[in-house]
Design a binder for these strands. Structure first.
Lengths: 359, 359
DNA sequence: CCCAGTTTCGGAACCGTTTTCAGCGAATCA
DNA sequence: TGATTCGCTGAAAACGGTTCCGAAACTGGG
């Protein structure tokens, strides 16, 4: 009924399926499938005919059907705190490039470092049957049901930037302890004696490592640990601002900040208080960016290999997806101290030089 | 044969399917499906039994199977130039939040503003049967086969930041013309008489709009257009650096740069040449960032509503996915001039005031 | 010329959902 | 109490691939 004896499938708005090309080239779907994945050798003539049909129909295999059949999606989920935090874009970029190289796509999620959002994102990713998940773990433990599901589907995770052995021992992180150690050692060499710390949330592994590096560097430099000079933030600007106010009121002569965003907050606070860096206090912070060299104060930073962080995480994850049984491993990448001006090294050089020459 | 009369499916490493919960709760799969999507009313007792089984088995529907059956993936592809360009993270974040709110996920791709990569990404996204695509179009035209495929699958696109009517008229962009116009008008008000431009690649709509705004503002201020003071870059640091060298050698007293990354390059060049901003030249650039207020030179910028750009693009795209037939529309968001210090407004105020008082 | 051994190919089951189409039972009304 | 309608329920067919298995075609040797 209706408009004539059409075969019922409206031609418009319908991508060709493997059946269409099979019919077009007068072979079975198996043969088409075989030439697509060039599997078991298909005769030259048939192969040509099939390829011709594929071109003619603009056929592209439906990857969701393939995913269902093969039980793998060639998609990996990536959960970061917040892509708008300038730290993450480069690691995401590193991950995306590595993923694509292996034929994988990236499903990007933001957790805002919130357990609840993180759990929701993971559930969704599991439902989408991603082949693996890259996770910058927020503080807190998964609810039992989620843990069960994760165990049940047996999907590989690899942690990025932060460890969380309860979930998996596979992780790629930066050597935060060393980075912090270098940073405050440098501050001390530059002549600082009362060094403050604005740390990340101590519920999270890298904040702990950075704090520990801070303490140990202090100790090895023979400097006292003053409780009033240590403030815990949450890696965001606002917390750096508050911490900055609190900290600077105790008049440290140097401060080490555990990430860039909090450094920005600290600088805001300093400006409000009429304090200048590096004249009034030395400063070294984590995370470096290409543009930090052109703005004053020229920040002395410890740079993390962000891109590599992302790419190595993906490489490891894909090895796991492919069933690698290499033993669980946390890959620790080395940071790099980039000395510019905010540490006041030039300023205090003479004093520093005289003390170090005494050794 | 083998180890007894086991039912053959190894229990380990296998997520429960809808059949499992149907068997467990002794109903048909239809009923289970019905309670999951709470469709046609299912009796209270049955519903309870099913939900109980779901909980017990930690069942989560397999979204790839659902996608295949429903012919929609609830996934949207987003192609940006480069997520590591600080401009994009916030628009991606805006997009991700909006997408999630509607139950969609974001598949993120980088094109490096390269036609070839862009085409590959699109093909992949089409194969993955994403429901729609957000695209910051690179320069150049799709190859015919791709155009055909796009037409054939009839998938909605919405353009972000750059228009490209050949593909679709749906776009959400910023009012680049106005932004540029305001920027250089402000420079002129601040007393600049020889204003230079570092533009984006003129193969791309927003670079053209910004250049046009530059010209018109010059004209309306009665300032001459000097060809040697206009240089085309590609929105990256390196090109800003080269352009900066070339431009500053002609000694402009003001320069307007079409994005932040090139501004960074310009500042590098200025430093190498011993030129200071705003003492030696006024500067206003596009893109603002939370941290620009704490570093010197404090950049005067025209800020684009990045987050909104992303979210509105998603909203429009989803309306299209849902079959909205509202007429094609480019949504133009207003930029905001943020006056700080790099424009030298304070510096030249007196001169500017005297001239404007004469009018 | 015949038969065993390889390729090559086609048929059909399967992946986990949704959804159509009947059928069955219960509830409402006369 | 019996008939009619309505609400639920279940079997089965898509969705678009992959892949096992058996059959057909082709090869070569005796």
């Amino acid at each position: 009924m209706g408009s004539g004896k059409s075969n019922g499938r409206s031609k418009a708005n319908k991508a060709a399926s493997i059946y269409d090309v099979a019919r077009e080239s007068k072979v079975s779907v198996f043969t088409v499938s075989a030439v697509i994945n060039n599997k078991s050798h298909v005769g030259k003539k048939l192969r040509d005919r099939v390829e011709e049909a594929i071109r003619k129909l603009h056929y592209r295999p439906n990857l969701v059907a393939r995913s269902l059949a093969k039980q793998q999606t060639h998609t990996i989920g990536m959960i970061v705190s917040d892509i708008a935090n300038p730290f993450f874009p480069m690691v995401v970029r590193g991950a995306e490039d590595a993923a694509r190289k292996h034929g994988y796509n990236l499903l990007l999620c933001n957790s805002d470092d919130t357990l609840e959002k993180e759990e929701n994102q993971i559930e969704l990713l599991l439902s989408k049957r991603v082949d693996g998940i890259l996770l910058t773990k927020a503080a807190g433990e998964f609810r039992p049901a989620l843990q069960q599901m994760i165990k049940q589907v047996n999907i590989p995770f690899v942690l990025v930037m932060r460890t969380y052995p309860k979930l998996t021992k596979d992780a790629v992180i930066s050597d935060d302890y060393q980075g912090a150690y270098d940073a405050v050692s440098h501050l001390a060499r530059a002549g600082c004696r009362r060094i403050g710390l604005i740390s990340g949330p101590l519920t999270v592994s890298n904040a702990i490592a950075r704090s520990q590096g801070f303490r140990d560097a202090l100790k090895s430099q023979g400097l006292p640990f003053e409780k009033s000079l240590v403030i815990e933030g949450d890696y965001r600007i606002e917390s750096g601002f508050r911490a900055g106010h609190a900290l600077l009121s105790h008049q440290p002569d140097g401060v080490y900040v555990a990430n860039h965003l909090m450094t920005v907050g600290l600088l805001q606070a300093a400006e409000e208080m009429g304090l200048k860096c590096p004249d009034d206090f030395g400063l070294v912070s984590f995370d470096d960016y290409p543009w930090l060299g052109v703005f004053r104060p020229k920040l002395t930073t410890v740079e993390l290999p962000k891109r590599q962080l992302g790419s190595e995480a993906v490489e490891l994850l894909i090895r796991r997806i492919d069933g690698s049984s290499e033993k669980a491993t946390v890959r620790k990448l080395q940071p790099e101290l980039r000395i510019r001006e905010s540490c006041g090294f030039a300023l205090h050089m003479s004093r520093s030089a005289s003390t170090s020459s005494g050794k």
